[in-house]
């Protein structure tokens, strides 16, 4: 926890709505989660009120943690995960953020592979309309002896209006030499030809967009205990944007 209010010079807060952060300042200490060796942890976070979540997760030897995030509410919403993986541990993140109006939504992760043979996979999809800003900052740190690390980041954003902004910054800090770190990042718009095709078959413009966006976020919540609830809430929010 930072004692001083962050500024935009702090990399992790570079795209943030500092006024909103100031209103929430000082933040309580981050939630601290320890997954014991061999344990399994699953967590769903729905940020729908405009709040800041800071969670530290330490995943023990051969343990797993799966976190699913739906970041959709309030003027400013931030979900910050600080994850440490011990030997053979596995971390999965499935995150969706959907923003309209002037919303600022952020998913910030720091995933540290502290020991060998740990795996991490992060999928984040952002849908942004109006003048909304969606940010994903994802840092992967691989310690010197964390050989056979396997980490993956797939980050995509869809802009529904030219006035919306998506920031995506995967960052790798690798000190081991036998590691696999894959990351893919894409920011795009809905395919106009696809939209026309759907409309030519009878879907209204809004329903056509909704269907394509539904496909865009599909799969992110796969395996979540609350998959149905998350999908439904995401669809409802998408419906408000199109």
């Amino acid at each position: 926890m930072t004692a001083l209010l962050p500024t935009r010079h702090d990399e992790a807060w570079h795209y943030s709505d500092i006024a909103a952060v100031a209103a929430a300042w000082p933040l309580p200490a981050p939630e601290n989660i320890i997954v014991p060796a061999g344990g399994h942890y699953a967590r769903t976070i729905v940020q729908d009120t405009g709040s800041i979540h800071q969670i530290d997760v330490a995943i023990g030897k051969d343990a797993t943690a799966a976190v699913h995030v739906l970041n959709i509410g309030g003027e400013y919403g931030r979900v910050e995960l600080n994850v440490t993986l011990h030997e053979g541990a596995d971390f999965k993140l499935g995150g969706v953020q959907i923003g309209g109006n002037a919303q600022t939504l952020e998913i910030i992760t720091t995933v540290t592979h502290a020991e060998p043979k740990a795996t991490s996979s992060q999928i984040v999809r952002s849908v942004l309309a109006d003048t909304a800003t969606g940010t994903y900052l994802g840092k992967i740190a691989v310690a010197r002896d964390a050989q056979l690390t396997d980490s993956e980041q797939s980050v995509k954003a869809m802009l529904l209006d030219r006035s919306a902004t998506a920031n995506a910054k995967p960052e790798l800090e690798i000190y081991a030499d036998d590691v696999k770190c894959a990351h893919g990042c894409a920011i795009g718009e809905l395919d106009p030809m696809g939209l026309f095709y759907l409309q030519a078959r009878g879907l209204s413009p809004a329903d056509a967009k909704k269907l394509m966006l539904q496909a865009f976020v599909a799969g992110v919540f796969e395996g979540a205990g609350d998959e149905e609830m998350l999908t439904e809430a995401a669809l409802k929010k998408l419906g408000e944007l199109v």
Partner: peptide
């Protein structure tokens, strides 16, 4: 109804789901 010279690929949207929605919208 327009049968396209180059039918469009729409990743992630299943044929049946889209057609049912399209038909019911009509």
């Amino acid at each position: 109804f327009l049968g396209f010279q180059y039918p469009v690929e729409i990743p992630g949207v299943s044929n049946v789901q889209f057609l049912r929605e399209a038909l019911n919208a009509q």
